[in-house]
Design a protein around this nucleic acid. Structure first.
Length: 800
DNA sequence: TTAGGGTTAG
C-alpha cells in the first residue's frame, strides 16, 4: 500500500471497494465483529477494508464504534497520524473520547502540541464538553511547548470546570510548571491538591532537580511517604551535579534495588566531578555484578576514558560499544569520536567519523574539529569547519578558541567578526578567546567594545572572563580600567589577584602592586608560584633588591611554595641589574636545580648593563654553547663587543651566527588605529602611508634634537659610520609605529604601541622627548613590561 | 486516557 497516493480518505475508499471485501456476507457489523476484525488487522490494506466496510454500512456513524476504530488507527504503527486525523475530521458523530484520543495522538505521536491546542479550541466551538481526561493531554501539550501563557489558560479552564481537583490533572499541572521552571506555581498546585500519589511526589521533586535546588529537593525527598527508585536516582543525579559526591554515594548505597539507571547515575556523578578513576571502578563493579549495560552508561564511561586517556580500558570499552551497535546509537559513536579526539588519536576519530558519515550530527562535527585543533592540525579543522552543513555556537567557539590557542590572534578576530555577520550571538566562552586575542594584538578598541557588549547584554562576568578582561586592560596599559574591573568582580580567583599584581608591576606601579599582595594575603587567598613570579618581577622592575630577597625567602617559610627555576632566574636578574654580579653568579651556582638558559641570560644582560665584559664574555660564550640557535645571546654579546669597539669579536660572533643558522628575530611593532592593527618591521617600506610616515620621522628627529636628543648608537649592530647608524636607528619599528600614531591618532588619546622584543635604549630616550615635544602620552608595551611616556619622563624611571 | 531517573561537542 502506497500511503503517499492515499491523500485522503475518499480515494482510499475508492481503491478498497473494488477489492473483494471480507465482510461482504455481513452487511451489518456488530461491535464484536469490529473488535475481532481489528484484532486481526495487521496491514494498511486490511485496515482500509474495515474502514470502507464501516462507511458502506453506515456503522461509522455510531460514535462508539468510530471511537474504537480511531483508537486502533492511532495505536497501530502502520497508520500515519495524518490519516487518522482525516478519518476524525470526517466523523459525523464524535464523543469526548474521540476528541481526547485525537488530541493525544497529535501530542504524543505527531509531536505537534500546538495542533492539539487548536483542536481543543474547535472542541469548545462545537460544544463538546471536555472531561477529566482532556486536561492532562492539553497540559502536557503546553509543557512540551514550554508555553507558559497557554499553560496558564488551560489551567484556568480546568479550574473553572472543577477538574483541577482530579489527581491526574494536578500531576500534569505540577509537571508543566516544573518543566517551565516555575516552582512557585508548581508548589501551589502541589500544596493545594486534595490527593497526592507517587506521580505527584516524583513530579514536584523533578522540578527542584531541574532547577538545581538541591536543598528543597532534599526536603521533598525526605518527606516522601514512600521512596522509589526513580526519585532516588534523580536525587543521586542532583547530588552529582551540585558536587555533593558523598551524599550521592550514601544514597546509592542505601538503595535496596539498584537498577541500571542507579548505576549509570553514580558513574556519571563521579565522571562529572572529575573522579574518573572512581567512575571506572564503579563501572567495573557494575559489570562484575552482571548488571545489564546500555548505550547511556557507555557514553559516561567513554567520557571518563577520554579524560584519563587510559589506553587499555579505552580499547575494551570501544569493544563493548561495537557490541552495543554504534550504528544504532549516534550518541555512542559521538562519545567514541570525542574520546579519540581528546586523546589526540585523531586518525582513529577520523575513521569513526568517516564510517558514520551518512548520519552524523553537530556534536560529531564539533568533536572532530576540536580533535584536529588539539593535535595542531588547524588547516584540517578549518576545512571541516567551512564544509559543515550547519554551524552552532559551539562550532564557532571551537574554531575561534582554536586560533587563539595556537597564537593565531588575527584569525581569531577575523573569525569572530565573521560570526557576528552571520548573526550568531557570542557567549562568555567565546569572548574569553576574543579578549585574549585583543590582549596579544593590543587591539584595545575591540577589547573595549567587547567589554561594553558584556555590560549591555548582561552577560555573566565570571572569574575567567573578569580575569581575562582585567589582564587585557593591564597589558594595554589601561591600569585604571583594569582595576575598575577588579573592584567590580564579585568572585576573584588566585589568577585574578595574580593578573592584577602582575599588571600593576608591568605598568611600573610597584608600590600598588606590593600593596595588593598584602591585601591578597589578608583576604585569605593563598599566593601561588605565579603570584611570586609577579611579585619578584615587580621588585625587579624597580631594583628593590632587599624587598625581593625578603619575598623570595617568605615563599617557602610562610606559604610553602617551593621556588622553581623561574623564581631563581628572577632573583638572578634582580641582583644582576642592581650590580650585585658576584652574588647573582653565586646564586646560580648554589640553586638546587640546573639553571636554565634564561637564568644565564639574565646574568649576561646584567654584565652588559654594568659593563663587565670579562664575566659577560664568559657567560655569553657558555650560553652560545648551550643554545647555539638562540638569537638574543649572540646579539647581546656582539653588542657588548661593539660598545667597546671590538669589531673583530663582533665579526666573529656574526660569523658564528651565520654558521649556526641563527636568524635575528626581526623587531616588530604594532599600533591600532580606527579598529585596524598596523604592523611595522624595522626599515619597513611596505606601509601605504610610508612617505607621510618618513616625513613625520624627519620632523620628529628635528624636534626632539631641540629638546636635547643625542642618538645612542652604542647598540647598533652594524659596523657603519655614525650618520648611517643614526638613519638606521630612525627606522626602528617602534619609531615607525609612533610616527604613524602621531599622524593618525588625534590628541588627547595616547599613542599605544606594542613591540615583540624589548624596547631599545635609543627609542626609550627618543620617546621621552617626543612626549614632551608634542605634548602627547605614549604607551609602549614590550615583551616584559610597559613604558608610559609623559611630559618627557617614563613610568619606569629609566630602570628596566 | 496523567508524570518521572542516567550520556556526548567549546
Amino acid at each position: 500500500m502506497n500511503w503517499a497516493k492515499l491523500s485522503n480518505v475518499s480515494t482510499a475508499i475508492k481503491s478498497t471497494v473494488n477489492h473483494k471485501l471480507s465482510f461482504k456476507s455481513n452487511p451489518t457489523i456488530t461491535l464484536s465483529i469490529l473488535e475481532s476484525g481489528l484484532l486481526r488487522c495487521r496491514t494498511p490494506k486490511q485496515f482500509n477494508q474495515i474502514l470502507s466496510q464501516m462507511i458502506l454500512t453506515g456503522y461509522l456513524k455510531d460514535a462508539y464504534a468510530a471511537s474504537r476504530l480511531l483508537k486502533f488507527s492511532i495505536e497501530s504503527s502502520f497508520v500515519p497520524v495524518d490519516y487518522s486525523l482525516q478519518i476524525f475530521t470526517r466523523l459525523e458523530n464524535s464523543n469526548g473520547f474521540t476528541w481526547n484520543t485525537m488530541m493525544r495522538a497529535l501530542v504524543q505521536r505527531k509531536n505537534s502540541p500546538q495542533d492539539a491546542i487548536l483542536l481543543y479550541k474547535s472542541m469548545l466551538n462545537e460544544n463538546v464538553g471536555p472531561d477529566n481526561y482532556t486536561y492532562p493531554i492539553l497540559i502536557q501539550a503546553a509543557a512540551l511547548l514550554v508555553a507558559h501563557f497557554e499553560g496558564k489558560q488551560v489551567h484556568g479552564h480546568a479550574l473553572k470546570l472543577g477538574f483541577d481537583l482530579h489527581v491526574y490533572v494536578g500531576n500534569t499541572l505540577i509537571n508543566m510548571y516544573s518543566v517551565c521552571g516555575n516552582m512557585r506555581d508548581a508548589r501551589r498546585v502541589f500544596d493545594g491538591s486534595p490527593e497526592l500519589d507517587r506521580v505527584s511526589w516524583n513530579s514536584i521533586l523533578a522540578g527542584y532537580v531541574q532547577i538545581g535546588d538541591v536543598e528543597e529537593a532534599k526536603r521533598v525527598f525526605d518527606r516522601m511517604p514512600q521512596r522509589n527508585t526513580i526519585a532516588s536516582n534523580s536525587m543521586i543525579v542532583l547530588f552529582g551535579k551540585t558536587g555533593r559526591v558523598g551524599d550521592a554515594f550514601d544514597l546509592f548505597n542505601e538503595l535496596d534495588e539498584k537498577d541500571m539507571v542507579s548505576w549509570s547515575a553514580i558513574i556519571s556523578c563521579y565522571e562529572q566531578n572529575r573522579m574518573y578513576e572512581d567512575a571506572l571502578g564503579m563501572f567495573k563493579r557494575m559489570c562484575a555484578g552482571g548488571i545489564e549495560l546500555d548505550e547511556v552508561v557507555l557514553v559516561s564511561i567513554l567520557s571518563a576514558c577520554a579524560h584519563m586517556c587510559a589506553g587499555e580500558i579505552r580499547k575494551s570499552v570501544h569493544g563493548l560499544a561495537i557490541k552495543m551497535g554504534i550504528e544504532s546509537y549516534l550518541n555512542l559513536l559521538n562519545a567514541l569520536i570525542h574520546m579519540y579526539s581528546k586523546c589526540e588519536e585523531v586518525s582513529e576519530a577520523q575513521k569513526l567519523f568517516d564510517v558514520g558519515h551518512h548520519n552524523l550530527d553537530l556534536i560529531s562535527w564539533n568533536s572532530m574539529i576540536s580533535g584536529y585543533i588539539r593535535s595542531g592540525l588547524l588547516e584540517r579543522a578549518e576545512a571541516l569547519f567551512y564544509s559543515m552543513p550547519e554551524k552552532d555556537l559551539i562550532s564557532w567557539s571551537a574554531m575561534i578558541s582554536g586560533y587563539a590557542q595556537h597564537d593565531q590572534f588575527s584569525k581569531t578576530l577575523e573569525l569572530f567578526q565573521e560570526m557576528q555577520l552571520s548573526g550568531i550571538r557570542p557567549d562568555e566562552t567565546i569572548l574569553v578567546s576574543v579578549i585574549s586575542a585583543c590582549t596579544h594584538l593590543g587591539a584595545l578598541d575591540l577589547g573595549r567594545w567587547v567589554h561594553a557588549y558584556i555590560s549591555k547584554n548582561g552577560l555573566n562576568v565570571n572569574v575567567i572572563l573578569g580575569t581575562t578582561l582585567l589582564d587585557m586592560y593591564m597589558k594595554c596599559g589601561c591600569v585604571e580600567s583594569a582595576m575598575d574591573v577588579f573592584c567590580k568582580m564579585e568572585e576573584r580567583g588566585v589568577s585574578t589577584w595574580n593578573a592584577a599584581i602582575l599588571g600593576l608591576a608591568m605598568n611600573g606601579l610597584t608600590e600598588r602592586s606590593l600593596d595588593l599582595l598584602s591585601e591578597m594575603k589578608s583576604s585569605g587567598v593563598k599566593p601561588n608560584e605565579i603570584t611570586f613570579m609577579a611579585v619578584l618581577g615587580a621588585c625587579r622592575h624597580m631594583g628593590l633588591v632587599d624587598e625581593g630577597r625578603s619575598h623570595f625567602d617568605s615563599m617557602v617559610r610562610e606559604f610553602k611554595v617551593e621556588p622553581n627555576v623561574k623564581h631563581y632566574g628572577c632573583m638572578v636578574d634582580l641582583l644582576g641589574r642592581a650590580g650585585e654580579l658576584e652574588e647573582a653568579e653565586e646564586l646560580i651556582q648554589t640553586m638546587p636545580m640546573a639553571p636554565d638558559v634564561s637564568t644565564w641570560g639574565a646574568l649576561l644582560g646584567a654584565c652588559k648593563k654594568h659593563g663587565d665584559v670579562e664575566m659577560g664574555e664568559r657567560v655569553g660564550r657558555k650560553l652560545i654553547e648551550l643554545q647555539p640557535d638562540h638569537d638574543g645571546f649572540h646579539v647581546l654579546l656582539s653588542n657588548m663587543y661593539a660598545s667597546r669597539g671590538n669589531w673583530d669579536d663582533v665579526i666573529e660572533i656574526r660569523g658564528m651566527m651565520t654558521e649556526n643558522g641563527v636568524v635575528k628575530t626581526p623587531g616588530c611593532s604594532m599600533i591600532e588605529a580606527n579598529g585596524i592593527v598596523h604592523e611595522f618591521l624595522a626599515g619597513d617600506k611596505t606601509h601605504p602611508q610610508i612617505e607621510e610616515i618618513e616625513n613625520k620621522l624627519e620632523e620628529m628627529g628635528k624636534r626632539i634634537k631641540m629638546e636635547g636628543y643625542v642618538p645612542d648608537t652604542n647598540d647598533v649592530f652594524l659596523e657603519i659610520d655614525e650618520e648611517e647608524k643614526e638613519t638606521s636607528l630612525f627606522r626602528h619599528s617602534e619609531k615607525l609605529a609612533v610616527a604613524f600614531g602621531l599622524l593618525c591618532i588625534a590628541p588627547p588619546t595616547p599613542i599605544r604601541i606594542m613591540k615583540n622584543l624589548r624596547i631599545c635604549n635609543d627609542c626609550h630616550t627618543a620617546f621621552k622627548l617626543t612626549s614632551k615635544a608634542y605634548d602627547r602620552e605614549i604607551v609602549a608595551r614590550d615583551r616584559h613590561r610597559f613604558h608610559h611616556f609623559k611630559h618627557g619622563r617614563c613610568s619606569c624611571s629609566d630602570f628596566w
